[in-house]
Amino acid sequence: MKNRTFFWFILPSLITMLLFIALPIVSVAVQSLHIEHEAVMVEVENCGPFGCKQELQVDVEETAKLKEERPLGQFNGLGTYTNRNHLAFSEIGLAWRSSTGLVDFMSKALNLPFYRALAFTLTYTFVVTPLVIIFGFMIALGVNTLPKRIKGPTIFISLLPMIVTPLIGSLILFWMIDANGILGATLQRIFDDPNLSLKASPALTWIMLMVYGVWHSAPFAFIVFYAGLQTVPADTMEAAMIDGASRWERTRYVVLPHLMPLTVFISLIQLMDNFRVFEPIVSFSAQASATSLSWIIYNDLVGTESQFFGSAGATSVLTIIGVSILLIPVLIRTWRDFNQKVV
């Protein structure tokens, strides 16, 4: 295809991506270097019955004007990155010097909002991803042995948790584990503890969020593995059987190696997607016990009194750095695939 023709075909698509994906990333980086204006103060003479006093007052008009003129705020350099709400270097340093042991240090660090969110995001990502693969694989093996007639309906039901809106799916689970919901109330009866609440305990909240994550993503792994199982080479399978391989050995030495590339594919996609975990925290109202990087950005943006663009920008940049690290293996793999195809 000629370069000119290519250019005209791709142009509309490219423009939207540059305007609404590339530019915002730049805009986020610029925002992160700025901070909201401080209120302009004026000295007013306040005269009362007991004489006159000089007082400082917020000059509302001037503040609004300043905001109007420079909506981005004032330049702050890397100040936002190092403050208490983000990387918190000084607090971390202080905690390191003053803490008695590693556990003490960790608990102090996890009181800082950014590290708290980072800890949950990473735990979620690296717990949910392997579980999704394991469950997806087991379901695929199971469904593959079902009679043909009930495979269709089984796949239909299996798709539901993945297709349904994440916010809605997590709400449905949340209502069931509510203290008065079917699962919550039943658990209370089983453990005979009327105060048992999955919402009140941070540990249980983390577990619930991860259970949701596995429930939501396992169908994806299942479908991909299931499709892979249809293409297991029959010759190799027969040869293994003639050599006397047991069912377990056939699964271990024929099926698993065949599905390995799919496993890599699923885990790369899942790592990137799980790193964004956000909606379940909103649905579960879990922010007291668990926050994620995406959630703290959202929280800065929808603040009731004012929005903290600088703070949201800094967290966004840090999140993008995190995603980029997870992205490197994906890029390497795509690169290699492409070059293999060309050769």
Binding site: S27, Q31, F278, L293, I297, V330
Partner: peptide, 10 residues
């Protein structure tokens, strides 16, 4: 791969 919320904040 970019999380949507980071774009939104831009």
């Amino acid at each position: 791969a970019m999380p949507h919320i980071t774009l939104v904040s831009g």
